[in-house]
Design a protein around this nucleic acid. Structure first.
Lengths: 251, 251
DNA sequence: CGGCCTATTGACGCTACTCAACATGAGTGG
DNA sequence: CCACTCATGTTGAGTAGCGTCAATAGGCCG
C-alpha cells in the first residue's frame, strides 16, 4: 500500500519473463511485447486455496499463470466436483468463457500463485493488430482442446495404471519445459485432486504409487516425486508409440 | 463439371441457411453475411464413412457441418480409437488444429453429409474486420471447450446409466434446436460408436437401452429413438439440478 | 436365399470402488 | 518442547459395476 513508488522497480514484464517461450509472448518482437505488456495486469499473488474466479462470475479477462499452479474445477448438481485441468506457469485460464458473459468453471490456486490478467476486449484489439499474437492465442486454444481430447481418451479407454503413469509423465515433461527437473519435482496437488482428475478413487492412486515404487519406476514421499526409470514409466503410460499423447512437439 | 452455369442457381448461402442461428453467421447483418459467404466453399457431400480430414493432414481450413453428422476420432498407439465428439449441422470442426499445421484428429461422416469449408487465413482476416464474427467464433470455441469439460465430468464421475441417459438427453436438445423433433429421432451413429464415445462396452449400451425401454423411459428400435418420459430421462441423466450440464442456455 | 454386419442377451470375472482401520505429518496451544 | 488434534495418505477386506467372451437374433444387400 505504502510502497507504490517501489512497484515500478519490481514490475515484471513479458520481456523479462522466462515463460515467454511458452506463453502468449511467443513469436512477438520487442515493440509488440511492449504493447502486450501495457494491457497485462499483474495481480497480487493468490494464496493456497484461493479462487481466481468462480463458476458463474462475470467474464472479462483471460489469465496466464505466472508462478505456482491452479486447478480448474467443474461443480456438479450433486455437490461433487470434477477437476478438468491443472495449470502450470505459462498456461492460460478462462478460455472456456470467451464469447460468453460468465465463467463456466472455477479456478483455485493449489499453492501460492501469481497470475497475469489479460482484459479480454483489449486482447481482442491487440490480436487484430498483432497477427502473431493472434496466432499464438489460437495455438494455445487449440492445444487446450487437443489436450482435453487426450484426456477423454484417458478416461474412456485407459486403465488406472496407465492414467497415473501418463499423468506423471505429463507432469515430468511440463516441469522440464519450465526449467525444472524432469526427474524430481513436487506435486502441487493432493492425492485427492489427482484421483478426482483421473476419474479414480484416492485409494487406487495410493496403491498405484506404492506399486510403482515397488517396481522401481518412481519414488514418492508425500508430494516429492522422483522418476527412477523413465523408459518404464513411458511404457506404462503407453507413450512409446507413434505419437506421444499429451505431449505436443517440443518448443 | 459441365454444369458450371447451374451452380449459381443451386448455390447455398449463409443468408439462406437455416442454421445461421447456431453457426458462424449468428449476429451478422446482411453485408457481413455476404462477405462471409464469399470465403465459404461448399464442398461435394461426403458419403457415409468418408473422412473429411485425417490426423496428421495439413490444416488450412475450419469446417462447418451443413447437413448430416460427423464423428471426430482420436487414434491411439494401440490401434484403438476414441471418439471425442459427434458434430451436427451448425457445429464447427477442426478447432483443435488452429495455429498448428496439422490436424490432431480424424473426422468421419456418419451418413451422407455436407460441410462448408472456411479457409482459416481468410477467416482470420474476416474476423479482424467483423467483430461480431470474431465474437461468434470465440463463442463457438469456448462452447467446444466447455462441452469437453462436461464430457470429462461424465467419464470421470458418472455411471454407465447416467452417461447414456445424458447422451440421449443431449441429442434430444440438439436435434430440437435444429428444428427436428426432440422426442423422436434417428441415431446417426452405431451402438459401437456410442459405447466408444461414452467409454463403455457395446454390450453395456445395449443392456441399458433395453432397461430404459422396460422402464418406459425411451423406446429404441434399431436407430430410431422415441423419448417416452422426458422428465424421467432428465432425472436419470442427473440434469434436473441447478444448471443443466451439457446444455448451454437456449439460443 | 445366403452371407455379413449390427445388435441383443447371458454367464463369468476382473478392475477399481467402498468401507474401515490405521499411519504419518502438520499445525496449534499449553 | 511435547501432547493433542486434524488433515492427508496408506493399507486391507469385501463387493459391485461393468468388461470380456460367447452364442444367438435380426436387418440389409447382393
Amino acid at each position: 500500500m505504502s510502497q507504490v513508488v517501489n512497484l515500478k522497480s519490481v514490475k515484471a514484464t513479458c520481456q523479462s519473463c522466462s515463460l515467454s517461450r511458452l506463453c502468449l509472448p511467443r513469436g512477438l518482437h520487442d515493440e509488440e511485447l511492449e504493447r502486450l505488456d501495457r494491457i497485462v495486469q499483474r495481480k497480487r499473488p493468490l494464496t493456497k486455496g484461493e479462487a481466481l474466479f468462480h463458476v458463474g462470475q462475470p467474464f472479462h479477462s483471460l489469465f496466464a499463470v505466472r508462478s505456482g499452479s491452479i486447478k480448474v474445477v467443474l461443480p456438479t448438481s450433486h455437490g461433487e466436483e470434477q477437476i478438468v485441468g491443472f495449470h502450470l506457469p505459462g498456461e492460460l485460464l478462462g478460455l472456456d468463457a470467451m464469447g460468453h458473459d460468465a465463467h463456466h468453471c472455477t479456478a483455485i490456486a493449489l499453492e501460492t500463485s501469481s497470475v497475469c490478467e489479460l482484459p479480454y476486449h483489449q486482447m481482442q484489439e491487440l490480436c487484430k493488430q498483432i497477427p502473431s499474437l493472434n496466432d499464438q492465442l489460437m495455438s494455445l486454444i487449440s492445444d487446450e482442446i487437443a489436450g482435453e481430447h487426450e484426456m477423454l481418451l484417458m478416461l474412456g479407454k485407459k486403465t488406472a495404471e496407465v492414467r497415473l503413469a501418463a499423468f506423471m509423465a505429463n507432469l515430468s515433461v511440463r516441469f522440464h519445459r519450465r526449467g525444472f527437473s524432469s526427474t524430481e519435482f513436487n506435486l502441487p496437488m493432493s492425492r485427492h485432486d489427482i484421483a478426482n482428475y483421473l476419474g479414480l478413487a484416492v485409494e487406487t492412486v495410493s496403491r498405484l504409487f506404492t506399486r510403482f515404487q515397488e517396481e522401481g519406476v518412481i519414488e514418492v514421499h508425500r508430494r516429492l516425486v522422483q522418476i527412477r526409470d523413465r523408459d518404464r514409466l513411458w511404457e506404462l503410460a503407453e507413450m512409446g508409440g507413434p505419437q506421444c499423447p499429451g505431449v505436443r512437439a517440443d518448443n
